[in-house]
Write a protein that binds this DNA or RNA. Structure first.
Lengths: 197, 197
DNA sequence: ACTCTAACCAACCGAACGGTCGGTTTGCTG
DNA sequence: CAGCAAACCGACCGTTCGGTTGGTTAGAGT
């Protein structure tokens, strides 16, 4: 851990500024947040923000890339002997990242595609989607998952369940990320019926 | 069916204008859509829009109320002898409305709470949430649903799965609303494992 | 043909927007 | 205590925003 010494006038650096920016973007929406809003929350002037980034769009790019890099790492090489094991690993890993990087992932999942930066983010999300779909397909083929629901549809439902966590989950002692992942995996794989496998 | 004859100069009325508006809001986001964007898509001038509504906010209010009225009707008095039956009826009904009123529900689910109109919409959504939670609670109490997942958490997962449909479902002959509801209910109640109940 | 109704438009307004500019402040380091 | 690096600020710019004004236009009913 080489914590290099900060030089120059203390205050925000890019990382600490980005964290605040992402929080405000999530509260008011990206388009609904003006640079003046952001400056007010940061307690600095609007022009000071442009010392750290070149544009509002760059803030969005940095934030979505951060979330996408983390998610890509988790989805790309899951460990497990069977496809079902690997699928479960991806689910648990996704929940872990989603919780650990909640503000960043939240912002990512709300991107609409208005600008080039947003379209790139959507494109990278689609890649992740395809990887998960392939994994579900493999798990159906090996006989681990029920064959009566279309694999592509199954993948959509799974991804949807995981992604919807951002709408309500907030870290707490009562519901840790591990508890959350356990409940989600049970729900998705074994279902809610009493006595379900 | 009393289709009263349209009087005056033909063109958009409030309903047809609202449909287009909601579509554009969903494409670019509410805050990301200017009244000029809207006018361009409608093929009329910006000021002509103000013949139909008094403000941009009113468009949002009309749209979210439309979605909320439909959802409230479905969630409020579900039919069924057991709590499980009523829960399944609410799930199927929610999917039906979500599909039938896809653009309106999509817009509703993306509201952030920036204005008074948006906060009212969020408040009404919370009421629906509470009703579903109560229903899940009842289903657990009667012994229909597994007791090892907290009912509130179960309700969140269920609601999340249903709501996430807006992110990918588009009407098609290959996947009808009924097919979709069947798959979702199977997924949520019986789970994905092969051989699950 | 005239009337009524509803839909429409060009031109405009003040405020808010993202972004720029030239210079200033702060605190560590040698 | 001088020098430097990094963070910061007030004033300003051109553009776009939601919204207003004072009319005009198209068609159905009589």
């Amino acid at each position: 851990m080489t914590t290099s010494v900060r030089r120059g006038r203390p205050g925000y650096d890019l990382d600490s500024l980005l964290q605040v920016a992402v929080t405000v973007f999530n509260e008011r929406g990206y388009d609904g947040t003006s640079m003046e809003d952001l400056a007010a929350r940061l307690g600095i002037s609007k022009s000071a923000i442009y010392h750290h980034v070149s544009s509002k769009t760059e803030l969005l790019r940095l934030a979505t890339d951060h979330a996408l890099d983390a998610l890509t790492a988790v989805v790309s090489d899951p460990r497990g002997d069977t496809a079902l094991d690997r699928l479960e690993a991806v689910l648990r890993g996704s929940v872990r990242i989603l919780v650990a990087e909640l503000p960043f992932v939240t912002l990512l999942l709300r991107v609409r595609g208005n600008t080039e930066v947003e379209r790139r983010a959507l494109s990278r999300r689609r890649e992740l989607d395809h990887m998960l779909t392939a994994l579900v397909h493999a798990a159906v083929d090996e006989g681990s998952l029920r064959p009566d629901i279309d694999p592509a549809l199954t993948a959509r439902l799974l991804f949807g369940t995981v992604n919807s966590l951002i709408d309500w989950y907030r870290p707490s002692r009562a519901l840790t990320p591990d508890d959350l992942a356990d409940a989600l995996v049970t729900y998705a794989l074994s279902g809610l019926h009493r006595g379900a496998a």
